[in-house]
Every structure is written in C-alpha cells, then in structure tokens.
Amino acid sequence: MTVSDVYHPPLFSIAPMMGWTDNHYRTLARLISKHAWLYTEMLAAETIVYQEENLDSFLAYSSEQHPIVLQIGGRDLENLAKATRLANTYAYDEINFNCGCPSPKVSGRGCFGARLMLDPKFVGEAMSVIAANTNASVTVKCRIGVDDHDSYQELCDFIYTVSSLSPTKHFIIHSRKALLSGLSPADNRRIPPLKYEYFFALLRDFPDLKFTINGGINSVVEADAALKSGAHGVMLGRAVYYNPWHILGHVDTVIYGSPSSGITRRQVLEQYQVYGESVLGKYGKGRPNLRDIVRPLINLFHAEPGNGQYKRRTDAALLHCTTLKSFLDEVLPAIPDFVLDSSVVKESTGREDLFADVQRLLPPPYERESQNHRKRGESLPTKPVTRDEE
C-alpha cells in the first residue's frame, strides 16, 4: 500500500521552514486542515546520525500529523543512508531532499542545499541512496537555478539527470533562483524574480514527472489557480505561517472539495492546550518551553478584532506564565467571543489570474540530454546499481 492509497494527494503542502515548522506548528496546522501535507524543518543528516540516542526530540510526531514529509539535507552519502534508516522508525510518508536552501550556513560551509543544484549527478546518487534505505517515497525540493546557472536548459538538465539516475519522480520547484553570495535567505525569497514560466515549461517537457510549485503564492485562491493551470501541487510557506486560520481553514474545502469541519478557534485552542500541556518540558527542563509551544499561536487571530491587544498580552504573559492553560486564560480575553466561536467564513483573497499569461512566456522546449548524447555518440546515463549501505 502506498501513501496515495491512504491520504489525499499533495495538492497543497506547507513548506519546510527552519525554526517554524516544528512539531508544535504542525500540530496546530493539522487541527485546522485535515488534508494539507506537512513538512518538517530541514534536518541535516549529520544531526540525525549524531543524535541517534536522542531522536525523539527531533523526529517524533503524533499520528494525527499524517501525511507528513521529513526533509533532510546533506552531502555525505553514508550519513544520508544512515539518517534515512534511523528515520524509518518514525514512518514518515515521504522523504524530501533539500536542494533549495540558500542559507550560507547550508550552501557555504555545509556545501549542500541550493549549491547541490550545481552537481546533479551527486543529487541523483544521493536520491538513489535515500530510496534504497526507505520504503517511503522520495522527492527533491530545489530552485530554478543558482547564481549565473539560471537558464531553463540548466534547470532541465538538473531535473533530467536526477530523475534518470534515481527513483525521483516528484520535484518541488521554488520558482526563483538562489543567489549564494551577498543575499540573506530572506532576500533570496524576495529579490530574485519569480519565473513561473520555467515551472510550467517543466510540466510540458517532463510529462512523466510530477511538479509542485512554490514561491510567491499567498492564498488559497492563488493555489487553486495554480492547480487549475496544470500544477500537480502547490506549496505555501510564510503566508500560511502568518495567516494560518484564513488560509489553512479553506484548504480542505477549496483545494480538496471536502465539507467544512465547522471547527472554531476556541475548539482548536482547547485541543492544542491538551497537546501543549502534554509536551511541556518533555525532553528535559525547558525542552520545549512555554514560549516554544505558544509561538505557533501568535498569528492565529491575524487581522481580527483584538489581535493587537492579544499580541501585547502574549508578550507580557510569557514573562511569568508556566502552563499553557494559564497563558490562554490571560491572553484570550482580548479576543471577542464572536471571533473565537466562528468557523472559517471569510472569503480568501488573492489573484485568480496570477498565471493567466504564463503560457505565452514559456521558454523553447527542452532539448533532452539524450538527444545531445546521441549527437555526440555517447552513452546515456544509467541508474546506478543499488549498494548495500550496511
């Protein structure tokens, strides 16, 4: 039985975000949406390997979080293999390999993340190693290019090489290139221009693969527009984090066609309180602490009456509250009852025409590497023989 037999397909995913998509945030997200696919923060393979005796604090999650994807990063094949085997105990539905993070800590000293797009043969080998050590599906998250290596041809070379050398059949494409020198990760999400035409050209040129679009999509309306334009899936990141109720609250109905659960934010908080009290200090004093558990709740009342006072009370309450119940008792009086007790009814806004002109901007079709090899009389790349990594 495959994950597609158990869960709805990954039409909508929440992006892996360092410091944000931790166990606490994913718990809140799942209370609001039953079908959105959740991603962990990126975990370096070395972290998993070196923390073998303490894996629960990094990899454990509740069964309600399915479908859930573990994102790992790294460049050492032996550590990638061992990390994958160690993660098997936790039964993630997919394992995603990070080839898109532009952080200097990752792409510089770590020599992985977006920098790996410059070495597609290694990525293909890494994906084969990961796949050989798990029964979960394997996927790659990448950019459309790196620095001056940003042509559509080079992007296609990367996709073709990785998919030819490994079982990878699904790519999550952040539709901006990464600039590895001179830009912060935040600027890399804002300054390089979006090139949605590259993403939609991949749909045309690789009909046997699946592609999820990421970058610059800020609402369920825009996610729905991407799906209607042909994307196999849509991934949102910070937009969901900053406005979880009014985005995730529409995912199940708009994206998946399910009836509304009718859940209210008061009910969400009642369930989250049970979770929060159960994990407070679970891994030792202050791990996690109350601030960690409260962080996902900060934006739950985005743009609602009382939100400003709620946030001010949050800052004050975290200075002295020791339980989630005492925290909620102190901050929730700032929110009117009609806000706490209403289900998601506000219309989600966004540009329905975000991709209206993309087809006329498509680059010329990719001249597949196979054609180039045949012209030169070279042999095609073949999938490597799977090695026993024990």
Rank of each mutant, 00 (worst) to 15 (best):
D56Y: 07
L43T: 05
V49L: 15
D93H: 11
E125N: 14
K82W: 14
C101E: 06
G19F: 00
P102S: 12
F12W: 10
W20L: 12
H35W: 08
R75M: 15
S62D: 15
N98L: 02
S128G: 09
N96S: 04
D93G: 09
T47I: 07
T40I: 06
Y61D: 11
H35T: 13
L70K: 01
L80A: 10
A132N: 03
V49H: 08
I48P: 05
D22I: 03
L43K: 10
Q65H: 14
M18A: 14
L77V: 10
S62G: 11
H66N: 09
A44Q: 12
N23S: 11
K105M: 13
M18G: 01
C99F: 07
V69Y: 04
L70G: 00
C101F: 07
H66W: 04
A83Y: 03
G113Y: 05
K105I: 03
K34F: 08
S103D: 11
F97R: 00
G108M: 10
T27N: 07
N98R: 06
A44T: 13
P120D: 02
L28Q: 13
L31M: 12
R30S: 04
N88H: 09
G113S: 06
W20P: 09
T40F: 03
T27L: 09
A83F: 02
P10G: 14
A91L: 07
G19S: 01
D56S: 13
A126N: 12
E78A: 12
A60F: 14
L59M: 04
T40L: 04
K121G: 03
F112A: 00
L31E: 13
A131W: 04
L11C: 05
S62T: 15
L116F: 08
G73W: 03
G124R: 03
V123L: 01
L43P: 00
T40C: 08
E52V: 12
D56A: 13
A131V: 04
R115H: 06
V129Y: 04
L118S: 10
H66Y: 08
A15W: 04
E46K: 14
A132E: 01
F12L: 12
E78H: 14
K34L: 13
C99D: 06
E94T: 08
D22A: 02
M117K: 11
F12M: 15
N96D: 15
R109P: 01
S128L: 08
M42G: 01
G108W: 13
N133D: 09
S63P: 06
D22V: 02
P102H: 09
R85V: 15
N96L: 01
P120K: 01
G108Y: 10
V49K: 10
